[in-house]
Design a protein around this nucleic acid. Structure first.
Lengths: 337, 337
DNA sequence: TTGTAGGCGTTATCAT
DNA sequence: ATGATAACGCCTACAA
């Protein structure tokens, strides 16, 4: 078995009580400097490591926070997680990560796992599929602090770290309108996801402001995956009266759609201008480069963990919704070249 | 405090002993089906959750594995982690993630944290800076199973999940030679990182095979970050006799170098052909698109966790080094157009 | 300043 | 089949 030295071993060796050892190792002032130094030296010598398991059980704190996201291998999310991990580490917290793969079932299981692991708090961005909230209600019932970022859950009282999706969608649509576009299609996600609703609202508000009629046949709902973008491109290609612009609620769908359109001889942006959302790095490298909305993922992640840690240390803190800076990044896919 | 129902609460309510409750909840056959059903129903009703902390302390297992990587927000690593998390979850293991940011210090601290958290095993890819191995030796000393992927550590006996870096570097260089290139520069990483040594070796072997003289002034060592690529580009621009090709040990340096070269009027690939390494997705979208080496990160991650779980369940299993499929992906940055 | 004792929640062992 | 007991390792009132 493993090389496990306990405070009892140290106690025996040093002929002290284990409580003295415990205090010394915790730098408690309630032990002489001399004994403390002696004990710490011996502990180091013997390679003693505090057993976090036992310590946690005793203190009922794990100094671990759980993160549940749709998937890690997407730039926005991995960058947000990088920010979370960085701040958590600085504050001596560990981070457990799980991916829901946008599935309700997996999300449920992950939450269950995290709760029974006694995480001190949870940061999450909801799965696309999630339309029931029993698992999230349980988090609240257990009084485990929770912070949503990006994809919030309106049904659950919690802290939220967001960008102003509606305003940015408005900006994106307005930008297309001001560039002279009249028939602007919108790619939206599943209706239970808050941000896609917000982006849809922003899109509609912009149309309204400029007196463009909202055409329901120009609003396409999908999972916004790569293949969805391709399918939608083919659908658009088959239309007699094509849109002259597309505002997609994410970059993946925008880019894959753009590729298919181009392969069929459509000129982007001349024939159809395209704007995405999220500012994935590869959008800067496509031809044409993709106009998109920067969501400041690193800042979102850092703000999410800061908010969570505050809530953990201060359980009565008022719940807040914080908006992180965001902006439309103009590139060539929406500019007349 | 939290809504925590324990087996003792259930015992009191059902007028049974806590050990019976424990057995029932563990589906032990040593309890009547009737009582078991009764207990399980009641547990569900009251929202009982096993306290993983206590259970772990008892069993001396955490069912948690630690992952230490340079940074999460890079495609290769986030994808590998996605694979790790997926398989871990299927096997009812949790994953703790830490980023060393390529710093030895942070890596040390992370390892220490993971060890005192009693993780059942560790998967890691070494930090660029790491040139001392005391922290890694401690992992071995504690008999905690460890698997390296991508950036291994030759000084530590462990499982390794790799690609054949040397062979792929050879392929890349040979490809440039067969395309008629004579002065092929190489961007390598810090010398303590195994994979960069391997890629350098592959590069040299290809030169040798085709009787090209190895020119030490064409081998550039750096951290291979974006800014390094730019600096190297400027350095190359200042040369009287420029290379006609560059083989970079990663994509980031390759792409940023390519950009700077192009801005200065160099035609890629005509004047200088470029090949990267890692096949980051954005390489497919640059102009010209970047020839690179696919490292199959998802498969590497899955193989790493499979190997680790096997080692955990079977501590005497022989240590292995597994090579994952990899291949040179030809794109426009190295083809005469 | 140091020691004693008990408990965090679970589970394995032994007894009934 | 079920109950009693002890132990995993740590921490903290309380006592001395």
């Amino acid at each position: 078995m493993k090389n496990k030295i306990t405070i009892h071993d140290l106690a025996r060796i040093l002929k002290k009580d284990s409580s003295t050892i415990s205090r010394a190792l915790a730098d408690s002032p309630r032990v002489t400097k001399k004994t403390r130094d002696l004990i710490q030296a011996k502990a180091k010598e013997l390679g003693y490591f505090r057993n976090t398991l036992a310590s946690n059980l005793r203190s009922q704190k794990t100094r671990t926070i759980g993160v549940v996201v749709p998937r890690i291998s997407r730039y926005f999310l991995s960058t947000a997680i990088a920010g979370i991990e960085e701040i958590a580490f600085e504050n001596n917290y560990r981070v457990i990560i799980g991916q829901s793969m946008d599935q309700l079932d997996k999300e449920r299981q992950l939450i269950e796992t995290l709760l029974s692991s006694q995480v001190d708090g949870i940061i999450m961005s909801m799965a696309m599929e999630t339309n029931q909230y029993d698992h999230l209600e349980r988090i609240v019932a257990q009084k485990t602090p929770i912070v949503f970022f990006d994809r919030r859950c309106d049904a659950i009282p919690a802290n939220n770290i967001l960008i102003d999706d509606c305003a940015r969608a408005f900006d994106a649509t307005e930008h297309l309108i001001l560039s002279g576009r009249k028939r602007i299609a919108h790619f939206t996600g599943l209706e239970n996801v808050s941000i896609y609703q917000d982006r849809l609202t922003g899109y509609k508000q912009a149309l309204q402001k400029y007196n463009l009629t909202e055409d329901p046949t120009l609003i396409y709902k999908s999972s916004l995956k790569s293949q969805d973008g391709k399918q939608l491109a083919n659908l658009i290609l088959s239309l007699k009266q094509k849109p002259d612009a597309i505002f997609s609620a994410n970059d993946i769908a925008a880019i894959s759609c753009m590729q298919v359109l181009q392969e069929s001889g459509i000129n982007v942006p001349k024939d159809i201008a395209i704007v995405g959302f999220s500012n994935e790095p590869l959008g800067a490298y496509t031809t044409p480069s993709l106009t998109s909305v920067n969501q400041s993922p690193l800042e979102m992640g850092k703000m999410a963990i800061a908010t969570l840690l505050n809530q953990i240390e201060n359980p009565d803190a008022k719940l807040e919704t914080k908006l992180i800076d965001s902006s439309l990044i103009l590139r060539n896919s929406s500019m007349i070249q």
